[in-house]
């Protein structure tokens, strides 16, 4: 796997040259990975309402360090909202979100920004800057947060692009990329600052099988080689069971169940089993609540 070698090389390379800013970022990540037992994200009795619509009603989630955790649920359960709550972009109505020992809603803005440098969020659309080339997109966080010389910056960006297999696409604009390539560029940008945690928002949605395979492999590989923690929000059960270590199932603002993919497939909850195997009918009924079918038909006669 040449990509892995390159990634490792990138880490050594940075340390070897003693580039202050980036080293500080990495040391932060290294320091953290020592106390391995403590979950990296601890969510306690989280309540969040969008206007009058309650999205989360007392949710407890622990994201273990160094693992890939999947958060699943039907469409519209606020999975993206959860990621934004972890990133501190949204404020919960009640409860706490603690990331790496810091409550994201209580810390100062500066501390929150320092925390965000150590986590990345991969948006569903990629959210690449449309006016910058692929190269500049990946270079963006480095340019914003470090003062590396141009030559080192170039090497770093090319290494990140090599890791996602798009070193040759560096001069393209986001408009010239396919959806899958855009996501890979976004992934390269997300690992630019060597974060401790990456959150993926629906990484497989709308991609062809080859791209899905590539992204799955990248997620697994980056997680293991960089010692990351990954959170994947999705409803693609099949893909998730293949790569994740731990699963959370959310529906109706509550956690319906959690455990390893194997636990989940044999869960006692009928709802979880229905979701895992994608049955059309079960605890989640096929029919929207309605009066009795026969009565309804006769009523018109």
């Amino acid at each position: 796997m040449p990509a892995i070698i390159n990634l490792l090389f990138s880490i050594h390379f940075v340390h070897g040259h003693g580039c202050g800013d980036l080293q500080a970022v990495r040391q932060g990540a290294l320091k953290v990975s020592k106390n391995n037992d403590e979950p990296i994200v601890k969510i306690r009795s989280l309540r969040f309402a969008h206007g009058t619509r309650v999205i989360f009603d007392g949710v407890d989630i622990d994201i273990p360090r160094g693992k890939i955790t999947a958060i699943m649920g039907p469409s519209g359960t606020g999975k993206t909202t959860l990621l934004k709550l972890i990133g501190g972009q949204l404020q919960p109505n009640a409860g706490s979100v603690v990331v790496d020992g810091e409550d994201v809603n209580k810390v100062s803005r500066d501390a929150l920004f320092r925390l965000r440098k150590r986590m990345s969020l991969l948006f569903q659309t990629g959210a690449l800057f449309t006016d910058l080339t692929v190269f500049e997109n990946v270079a963006f966080p480095l340019r914003e947060h470090t003062r590396l010389p141009e030559s080192i910056l170039r090497d770093l960006v090319l290494m990140k692009l090599q890791a996602v297999g798009l070193r040759g696409a560096r001069d393209l604009l986001p408009a010239e990329l396919s959806g899958g390539m855009a996501r890979r560029v976004a992934l390269a940008r997300a690992i630019a600052l060597d974060p401790m945690m990456i959150m993926y928002d629906e990484p497989f949605t709308g991609q062809d099988p080859i791209t899905v395979g590539v992204i799955m492999q990248l997620i697994r590989m980056l997680n293991d080689t960089l010692g990351l923690t990954s959170i994947i929000v999705s409803h693609d059960v099949h893909e998730l069971t293949m790569i994740c270590d731990h699963m959370y199932m959310i529906s109706g603002g509550k956690v319906m169940g959690h455990g390893t993919p194997d636990d989940m497939a044999h869960s006692e909850s009928g709802w979880v089993r229905q979701f895992m195997s994608g049955l059309p009918d079960g605890p989640v009924p096929f029919h929207y609540p309605a009066p009795d079918y026969a009565d309804d038909l006769l009523a018109g006669a």
Binding site: S120, F123, T130
Partner: peptide, 18 residues
């Protein structure tokens, strides 16, 4: 507006860039 609609602003915020 389009940067907001395509989550570029949000993405920037998550990269700790105001």
């Amino acid at each position: 507006g389009l940067m907001k609609a395509t989550e570029q602003l949000s993405g920037m915020e998550m990269m700790a860039v105001d």
